[in-house]
Simulated scan of single mutants.
Amino acid sequence: MTLPPDLLYTSEHEWLRIEGEHATIGVTAFAAEALGDIVYVALPAVGQTVAAGTPCGELESTKSVSDLYSPVTGEVIEVNDDLAATPESIGTDPYAQGWLFRVRVEELGETLDAAAYADLTRAG
């Protein structure tokens, strides 16, 4: 599994890309593979405040429904509306087209760098 080294990761298998005061958030390839074929995505609404480490949405696959956790606290400023029609892009391109939402960051939750996240996925 190749992990983009410029991203941060969480133990709940989300990734985030920090760009100034904003963060783009998605789920890792590891999580997408574990979920299987993703068929529905419930994301937080634009304007909603999300809190680091708490559920803010759901990913439904042919196998199960999984909570989506926010890795940051802040206001949602954009969601990937394309996922309504193509939720499978989370599995096929999780670090680009499969992004989930963007947040104006107030506080960063607990994160891991790529090496630490790789160790976590090997251990788990």
Rank of each mutant, 00 (worst) to 15 (best):
M1R: 14
M1H: 12
M1S: 13
T2D: 14
D6W: 08
D6Q: 13
L8E: 09
L8G: 05
L8N: 07
Y9R: 02
S11E: 15
E12K: 08
E12G: 04
E12L: 09
H13P: 05
H13E: 02
H13S: 02
E14T: 11
E14M: 08
R17Y: 11
I18K: 15
G20K: 00
E21K: 12
H22F: 08
I25F: 04
I25Y: 06
I25T: 03
G26V: 11
T28E: 04
T28R: 03
T28Q: 06
F30M: 11
F30G: 10
F30K: 10
A32W: 01
E33N: 14
E33Q: 13
L35D: 06
D37N: 12
I38C: 13
V39H: 04
A42Q: 15
A42G: 15
A45D: 10
A45K: 11
A45F: 06
A45G: 11
V46K: 00
G47N: 02
Q48W: 14
Q48R: 15
V50F: 05
V50C: 00
A52H: 00
A52F: 00
T54L: 01
P55I: 00
P55H: 00
P55D: 00
G57L: 11
L59Y: 01
E60L: 00
E60Y: 01
S61N: 03
S61Y: 03
S61W: 05
T62M: 12
T62C: 12
K63E: 02
K63S: 01
S64T: 15
S64F: 14
V65I: 09
V65L: 07
S66M: 07
S66P: 03
S66H: 04
D67P: 12
P71H: 02
V72G: 06
T73M: 04
T73C: 02
E75L: 07
V76F: 06
I77A: 10
E78R: 15
E78M: 13
E78C: 12
N80S: 05
D81E: 13
D82H: 14
D82W: 12
D82F: 12
D82M: 14
L83P: 04
L83N: 04
A84R: 12
A84T: 09
A85Y: 09
A85P: 09
T86M: 10
P87Q: 06
E88H: 08
S89K: 15
S89F: 15
I90S: 03
I90H: 03
I90R: 07
T92K: 03
D93S: 13
P94M: 09
Y95M: 08
A96C: 14
A96S: 15
Q97N: 15
Q97W: 14
G98N: 06
G98R: 05
G98I: 04
F101G: 00
R102G: 09
R102D: 12
R102P: 00
V103C: 09
R104G: 07
R104D: 06
V105L: 02
E107M: 10
E107V: 02
L108P: 13
L108G: 12
E110R: 05
E110F: 02
L112P: 13
A114V: 05
A115M: 06
A116H: 02
A116G: 06
A116R: 04
Y117I: 03
Y117G: 04
A118Q: 11
D119E: 11
D119F: 05
D119R: 08
D119P: 00
G124K: 08
G124Y: 07
